[in-house]
Simulated scan of single mutants.
Amino acid sequence: MKREAAEQRGRQAEKTAARFLRLKGWRILGERVRTPRGEVDLVAKRGALVAFVEVKARTKLEDLAIAIDERRLKRVAAAVEILYPQYCTNGEDARIDVILVAPRRLPIHLPNVWHGF
Rank of each mutant, 00 (worst) to 15 (best):
D97L: 08
I96L: 08
D63F: 09
V98M: 06
I99C: 05
A78H: 10
P107T: 05
I96N: 00
E39K: 08
Y87P: 03
R105W: 12
P107A: 03
V50Q: 07
V101G: 04
A65W: 13
E92A: 09
R95T: 01
I68R: 12
V113G: 04
G38V: 04
E31D: 04
D97M: 11
P111F: 08
G116D: 07
K2I: 10
E14V: 10
L83C: 04
E14I: 10
K2D: 11
I66E: 13
I28Y: 08
A57Q: 07
R9P: 00
A94I: 07
K45Q: 15
R9W: 15
A94W: 12
T35A: 08
K15Q: 14
H109W: 15
L61F: 14
P85F: 13
G91C: 05
V55C: 06
W114H: 03
E54C: 01
A17F: 09
V76Q: 07
V53A: 04
D69M: 09
I28R: 03
G116L: 08
E54R: 08
G47N: 06
D63I: 00
D63E: 14
D97I: 03
N90K: 14
E54N: 10
E4N: 06
R27Q: 11
V101M: 05
Y87Q: 06
Y84L: 15
R19Q: 12
H115L: 10
R19H: 09
A77N: 07
V101W: 06
F117M: 14
C88A: 15
P85R: 13
I68H: 09
E4M: 12
F52T: 00
A94Y: 15
G10M: 09
A65D: 12
F20Q: 06
A67W: 09
L23M: 10
L42T: 01
Y87V: 03
R95A: 03
V33Q: 04
R3F: 15
K56Y: 10
A48D: 12
K2L: 15
M1C: 06
C88Y: 08
G47D: 07
A79V: 09
R27K: 13
N112L: 05
P107F: 08
A44Y: 08
A65L: 14
G38W: 14
R104D: 15
